[in-house]
Simulated scan of single mutants.
Amino acid sequence: MGDAGNSDEQPLSARLRALPDNQPMSISDLARELGTRVHGLALLILALPEALPLPLPSMAAILGLPMAAVSFHLMLNGENGRLPAWLGRYPLSPSLVTIVRTRLADLVARGERLSRPRWTSIVGRDRAVGGLCLLLSMILLLPLPLFNMAPAACLALLAWGLLRRDGLFVVIGVAGSVLVLASLILALSGLAWWLEGT
């Protein structure tokens, strides 16, 4: 499965609102319905439940592995590569699809007013972005309480930049990722220092 087309006849927010209600879907199904760049779309859908205060607690353990798989595939093949069939078949729960159709659609509508194709040479470095997304996905899999929102937000920013071909959002996502990594290193260093002193 690859880029299902970048039709501009309808904005992405309108296509999100048109998704079927209370119905399980796979990543492939979602990409066919939305007709957009599959890696960015998949990462956005998988990251946002942890990036926002949505009623889907403790989703990082469930969504982290497919996020890592999509990121790894993006790193190897770029945005124009086709997702392997097994990854395209990954199921998205009806509750997640409902939240995508309602709350995410409103957020995307606001984002569409702020984003446009720009700094496309940065967006073209999609394999490097995939490597960074893989690192953030691995951080999400760590048992770190109260630390999921920041890396998930950076993942969502990077995914949105890929999806909209907006290099500004990619740069913001990269900057945020540097802060996340620095905070994690400082926290782990502080923990090691505390353990050595006890």
Rank of each mutant, 00 (worst) to 15 (best):
C154W: 03
T98M: 10
L56Y: 02
I122W: 06
M67V: 09
H73W: 06
L134I: 04
Q23P: 01
V70P: 07
R113E: 14
G2S: 15
S121F: 13
I27H: 10
L56E: 10
L141D: 06
L104E: 03
P91Y: 14
L191N: 00
N22T: 13
A60C: 12
N80M: 13
A18H: 03
I139Q: 02
L168Q: 01
L168D: 03
S13A: 15
R101T: 01
L46H: 04
L74M: 15
W193I: 07
G197M: 13
I185G: 09
G197N: 13
L181Y: 01
M149L: 07
R125M: 14
S58F: 15
D29G: 08
A152V: 10
R127D: 11
I185M: 08
V38G: 03
L134P: 02
V171N: 02
A156C: 00
L48Q: 11
L114N: 05
F72N: 08
A4W: 06
T36N: 12
I45S: 03
E196M: 12
D106C: 02
T198M: 11
L30M: 10
L195T: 10
P151S: 11
L34F: 10
S95H: 09
V180P: 04
W193Y: 14
A156I: 07
L158I: 13
I99W: 11
L56P: 04
Y90N: 01
L44Y: 13
P91W: 04
L12P: 04
W119C: 04
R125G: 14
P143A: 06
P11T: 07
R37S: 06
M138G: 05
P55I: 06
L52F: 09
L140A: 06
